Amino acid sequence: MAEAAAAAPGGPLLVPDEKDLRRRTSAKWRCHPTDVLPLWVAEADVPTPEPVARALREAIDRGDLGYPADHLGYARALDAFSRERWGVPVPEERTFPVGDVMQGVTELIGLLTPPDGTVVISPPLYPPIAELARHRGRRLVEAPLDPAGRMDPEALERAFRSAPGSVYVLCNPHNPTGTVPRPDELDTLAGLAERYGVRVVADEIHGPIVPPGARFTPWLSRPGAGRGFSVLSASKSWNLPGVKAALIVAGPEAERDLASLPEALGHAASHLGVLAHTVALRECGEWLDGFLAGVAANRRLLTRLVDLLLPGVEVLEAEGTYLAWLDCRQLWPGEPDPAARFLERGRVALSPGPEFGTGGEGRVRINLACSPALLAEAVRRMAAAVD
């Protein structure tokens, strides 16, 4: 196991010294006792890219801690990044700043549906999406993923037929499964949305976290997606959730809807966040490439270690995010929440599958954005919990 961990290359992925990590005061490292290995919330064990750290230090040194004045620099940086990585432009006139991706998704749900309207989701799904839709008073209709963790066209059509004029929240790449929708799957979605008058809002926060050999396809790049929206951020890709900023991007047929958002909402983005995210997109592509290489290596390492130490556990095949979705139903048949057992018996904190809704029972989500040594120790502890 130690040899496997040592063989996995890192890039800028990793702060391997657990003592240094435990000095952090963010949620990942402070929500559990110190004997627990935290591989749950989507924070990455990475150093801050130096250009980002320098920009933040310089802003603090000059007392530049006011309100953001102009989000267009962020939009232009995203446009340049998107053109280079995905071959897709992001017109700055169709962008709007928000505090984070979930705020953007929630505001769009409020904009596009009436107070008694419907939101369609495809569980298992990142829990805040359903939680915030309910908080807005919207009814939820489910179109569950298929067993491979991909969109199910028949389930989508049933849901859209039952709720015409609703909003569908697309998670691209998908959280928790890590699956990356193919162009043909997105085209099928676009056709169904058009047929039933459904507006698609895409959470694409993990879009940059797709390794070489795979490809992320932005929702708004597909024919028929023009009435939709995307919400993006540098937050996950460069580990910047503590400096909040995100951008709503409207399709060409949705620009008028975007203009109806209140101007005050644009002040929710942090000034430091806009600075940090802009620098990350403009100057930290090489850093990101190293991060992606480290995540890909850890995904391979996880599969090998699970095969070796946790027979019966299935790691869902995935390409995107730095998360992995594990099916543990053969370990403890009938146990809906194996994460609780791994925490109690193995002192490893994972995200409980049932929190992600339908299809989450008997499963856990594990965070791969850590050192290979820490990941290997986590799997060893999980195996000991089973024994």
Rank of each mutant, 00 (worst) to 15 (best):
Cys171His: 08
Glu314Leu: 14
Leu247Gly: 05
Pro91Lys: 06
Val198Leu: 13
Pro336His: 04
Asp70Trp: 06
Arg341Ala: 10
His71Tyr: 11
Leu140Lys: 11
Arg215Phe: 06
Ser235Ala: 08
Met102Ile: 03
Gly87Thr: 02
Ser162Lys: 06
Leu261Glu: 02
Gly251Asp: 06
Ala4Leu: 15
Ile205Asp: 15
Leu112Phe: 05
Glu131Pro: 01
Glu377Cys: 07
Thr358Leu: 07
Ala318Gln: 09
Ala268Gly: 14
His277Phe: 00
Ala202Gly: 00
Arg85Ala: 13
Trp325Leu: 05
Pro49Cys: 05
Arg365Pro: 08
Leu232Glu: 13
Leu192Asp: 03
Glu314Met: 11
Glu107Arg: 13
Val386His: 04
Leu302Tyr: 04
Ala268Asp: 08
Lys28Gln: 15
Leu343Gly: 10
Leu170Asn: 13
Glu157Pro: 06
Arg57Lys: 03
Ile366Glu: 11
His135Ala: 15
Arg76Phe: 10
Phe291Arg: 06
Tyr74Ile: 03
Glu204Tyr: 10
Ala318Tyr: 08
Glu131Arg: 07
Gly320Ser: 09
Ser233Ile: 02
Val105Arg: 02
Gly197Asn: 01
Ala55Leu: 04
Pro91Cys: 09
Pro16Asp: 08
Gly63Asn: 09
Arg62Ala: 05
Ala202Gln: 01
Gly266Met: 05
Val15His: 03
Ala53Val: 02
Gly110Thr: 01
Val306Ser: 04
Arg256Gln: 14
Pro97Phe: 04
Glu58Arg: 14
Ala53Pro: 09
Thr217Leu: 08
Ala264Met: 00
Gly73Val: 10
Tyr322Arg: 10
Asp307Trp: 09
Met151Thr: 00
Leu316Tyr: 06
Ala296Arg: 15
Ile366Pro: 08
Thr34Gln: 14
Ile209Trp: 04
Gly312Trp: 05
Val279Ser: 01
Ala340Ile: 00
Tyr67His: 11
Asp35Asn: 12
Leu170Ser: 03
Pro352Lys: 06
Gly320Glu: 08
Met382Asn: 03
Trp238Gln: 05
Gly63His: 06
Asp100Ile: 00
Pro38Ser: 12
Ala259Ser: 10
Arg347Met: 05
Leu258Met: 06
Met1Thr: 14
Ala349Leu: 13
Thr358Glu: 12
Thr48Trp: 08
Trp40Cys: 13
Ala318Arg: 12
His277Arg: 01
Asp187Met: 12
Asp184Gly: 00
Val364Trp: 13
Val105Pro: 05
Ser270Tyr: 11
Arg195Ala: 15
Ile60Cys: 13
Leu258Ile: 06
Leu275Met: 12
Glu355Lys: 14
Ala2Ser: 13
Arg85Leu: 07
Val88Asp: 12
Leu350Ala: 07
Thr106Glu: 15
Gly273Ser: 05
Asn239Asp: 14
Leu192Ile: 01
Arg299Thr: 11
Leu350Glu: 06
Ser351Val: 06
Ala8Gln: 09
Cys370Lys: 00
Val180Pro: 09
Leu111Val: 02
Val120Lys: 01
Ala7Gly: 13
Phe81His: 08
Ile366Phe: 03
Tyr67Ala: 14
Leu65Pro: 07
Ala259Trp: 07
Val141Tyr: 01
Ala268Thr: 15
Leu192Pro: 03
Val210Trp: 09
Val180Met: 13
Ala246Gln: 08
Arg300Pro: 06
Pro114Cys: 12
Gly178Lys: 01
Pro47Val: 15
Val313Phe: 10
Gly334Cys: 12
Asp79Met: 05
Asp187Thr: 13
Pro372Tyr: 11
Leu108Val: 03
Val119Thr: 02
Val41Met: 07
Ala376Gln: 03
Ala340Asn: 01
Pro124Cys: 09
Arg85Gln: 11
Arg22Ile: 00
Gly11Ser: 07
